[in-house]
Every structure is written in C-alpha cells, then in structure tokens.
Design a protein around this nucleic acid. Sequence first.
DNA 1: CGTCACTTTGAAAGCTTTCAATAGGAGTGG
DNA 2: CCACTCCTATTGAAAGCTTTCAAAGTGACG
Lengths: 246, 246
Amino acid sequence: MYSHAAAYASRTSSAAFPIAAERAPTLRDLFKSQPAETFNPGEALFWEGDKAGPIFEVLEGAVRVYRILPDGRRAILGFVYPGDVLGVSFQNRYLVTAEAVNKVKARRFARERFFAMINDSPPLRPQLFAMLCDEMSAAQDQMMLLGRQTAEERVVCFLLAVHRKSARGAEIELPMSRQDMADYLGLTMETVSRMMTSLARRGLVAPGSRHTVTLRKLESLREIAGRGEDEPEAQVSLDRRAIWPN
Amino acid sequence: MYSHAAAYASRTSSAAFPIAAERAPTLRDLFKSQPAETFNPGEALFWEGDKAGPIFEVLEGAVRVYRILPDGRRAILGFVYPGDVLGVSFQNRYLVTAEAVNKVKARRFARERFFAMINDSPPLRPQLFAMLCDEMSAAQDQMMLLGRQTAEERVVCFLLAVHRKSARGAEIELPMSRQDMADYLGLTMETVSRMMTSLARRGLVAPGSRHTVTLRKLESLREIAGRGEDEPEAQVSLDRRAIWPN
DNA sequence: CGTCACTTTGAAAGCTTTCAATAGGAGTGG
DNA sequence: CCACTCCTATTGAAAGCTTTCAAAGTGACG
C-alpha cells in the first residue's frame, strides 16, 4: 500500500514523536509514495470548471486558490501552504483555480483512489472529516473578516495568520504580491500597501524585503485584529482526538 | 421543495415502506425517528463556544448562524432552511451560534450516534461528504460576494438565492429582519433598505409585506447579480451521484 | 388609538477606491 | 559594474460608495 514508515520530511501530526512505533496512518501518508512535482510561479495546478481530478499535497511553496467573476474581479479564497491538502472539497468539478504563487512542489494522488482508500480506512475517515471542518472553520473566519472588519484589521489578521502558520519567529514571509493579498482580503492593492505603511510607521511591523515583514509588537497587533486570535491553532484538528468514533 | 416523499416512517437501510422499494437511506432519514422540537423566534439551538452537542435537521422556519466579534459586530455566516442539516461541521465546540429567525421546528440527533451511524453506513458516508462540500461551496460563494461584490449585487444575489431555495414562484419570503440581511451581506441595515427601495423603484422587484417581495424581472436581476446564477442547484449534490466509491 | 419595534429616508461624514504619478528592485545587457 | 527596462509597490489627491447619525414612517398589538 503506502509506506508510511518513510523518513518524515514533512510535518505530519506525530512528527514530534520520533519513536512512535504504531502510529496510525495519516491522510498525508497517502501521498508519500507519489513523486514530487514542481509548479512554476503562476502555473495552475487545476482550473475552475475542470472536471475534478487529482488531490494534491503541497510540500513547498504557496498556492493561491481563487475564483473570478465574469467581469474579471478576482477573489482569492485561500492560500495553501506546505502540509496542506488541496482539491478535496469539490464534487464533479473544481470550483476554483489553484495556482502556484512561487515555486511549488506538490504530490498528486488520483481522486478515486484517494477516496477509495479513505473510505476503506476507519482511521482515515475522521481525518478527512476533520480536514473539511478545518477548511469550513477557516472559511467562516474569512467571512467574518470580509463582512465585518476594517481594512486595517484585515491586514493585521492576515499577518497574524501567516505568523501562526510559519512559526518561525517574528519575521514572516509573504510570498504573494500585494494584489494577491488584496484579492484575499477584499481590498485594493493600494489599500493593503497603505495599511502596511501605516503599521510600519507606528512601529508595529518592520518591513524587510518586499516579501518579508517582521512583526514587532505582537500584542498590539493582536489587539488590532480584535478576535481571540491568541493560541496557535494551525493544523490542530487533524491531531486532536476526533469526535468521530473509532 | 425537497419533499421527502412523506410516508417514509422508516430510517434504517433495511427500510420497509409502501412505495419506493429499494431506496438508499439518506442522511435525513436518520432524523425521522426523532421528535420534532419547536424553537421560538430568537431562541438559540446552540451557542458559540458550547461543547459540540446535537446535530439538527430543520423542518420548518429559518435559522441564522452567526458569530460575534468582541466589540459586538455580528456576521451571519448563513441561514439554514427546512431540509438542511445543522451543526455537523464542528469539532469539539460549536464555532457559531444558531438562532431561530421565526418559529422553527427541528429534530435533534445525538452527535456521537450520528457519526457512528454514518461511519457504519457505506451509503451514508458519501452523503456526509457531499453535504460538507456543499457547505464549503456556499461559503466560497459568500466569500466572493463579501470580498468583491457591490451592495446592490449582494442584495440581488441574496434575493436570487432565496428564490432558488423557495422555488415557489416569483414571490419570495424573507423571514429575517433587514439587520439580519445586512449582517449576512456585510452591509448596514440602511444600505440593504436603500437597495431594496432602488430595486423596487426600477420595477425589478415589488415589495409585498415587510417580509415578502416579488421578483419582477428575474433576467435583469440575474444580470445584476453578475455571476452565473442560472440553474437551480440547491441541495443537488446530496442526490447526485457522488464521486465517492460505493 | 397609543406604544413599540422595525424600516425607510435624508444628509453629512468617512473609509476605501480610483486614477495617476513616483519610487524601488530585480534582471539584463553594455 | 553600472545603465536601462520592466514590473511591482508606494504615495498622493479626488471621487465614490457605504456608513453613520438622525428623523420620519409603518405596522403589529394590546
């Protein structure tokens, strides 16, 4: 089947326990046997409207997932980072386009086989469910943000969200363009830029290169973000005991 | 609309009933044995932060699902209508509050048993998956709307969405208040009101009572909505052949 | 028929966008 | 190594859409 004993290159749930002998298989283990593919910046993994094809696990880089209105307005519905699985929650067709932001490495897995294996594996099923719940939860956060938060709050929320995912100190990386951020936050690129400048002027962040920022005053930023954005939570639900039986 | 062929008293896969002989069990069948409960307007089915409890099937009325920011701003993340299942996509805790808009009748089902039964039933599992995908799809539509559409487009999209669900002619019912609509559409109550007035003045809709409107020019409205909101689609994926095997 | 809650309407203010110009960086070629 | 070009980001100023604040209107109910 799939050799999940392989060297843990990716951050899987139990990565913290090098010894864990009888580790239950995880969703991401399914991809272990697949070859890594590379996508160049701007290259699409799949297009909105295409017949739903493979599921991807992102290994490196960032993917933007978006939809476009007939008149060209674009909304980025999410960014997908290493360790995330992409392409699951669609039915017959992809409802969105997924495009590499920077150089992306990913593994693909045939859709039917993906679901067949999960369907056959009692420990995997709750993980799929948990993954969908996480996606749903993120979507709800985003709806709250888009519907009821100000431009500044949106930008700060975004910076904090990236920070939570990166877990690499105060300096975060923003591989996407300002336009990407704008389309994700429901703003214009100019507004995003202004907010970044404003945060920098107040000493809350310090711009590094164009694609890096250092978060100088996390506490103040969290206050601005306004929501209980406190504890790190990325990827937790795949690990925490699922409510699903077995 | 989704008239679950009334006479089905049964709820397990080994169903026995008059007409449709070998019908596969549906998610909603699970609720058939449960007593119907009533919730009065404003009454909550569950609260954000509560330990995740029962799953509900809404039979009558409408439920608003929302989240509130610390400073009181509210975003309604969705409305739940008869035939919809509510409370599934949460893990340990409810992430939202669900509150009756008008008089609501619903059946409840214990969470553990709900998932246990689905987990044990190969035909039910893809339905749960399909349901989550539908939720996700709706959430994506909403993100697009909130992030990139104008006030008028939002209101029109909402009217058309209600129209698709009601499927009862050109007159639609809006059980929720203007404030509810506003919190759903990321607008203020005043803006919603102004847009309705504007649509009425242009003859696109005709106000009935405070909670009913007649859509006079569906085509024009669809044009304003701007997205390919053409074919009716509510609830389809629960019925259409799932990609999930078996 | 008065009260109360919700909705509509008006006018001014505000935040974000739009349009336009300037600045900054990376890559290329001399 | 520097000049040049292109693309992206920043900044400025005006316009615009939505919000805010306030008042008037409407309908249900006792």
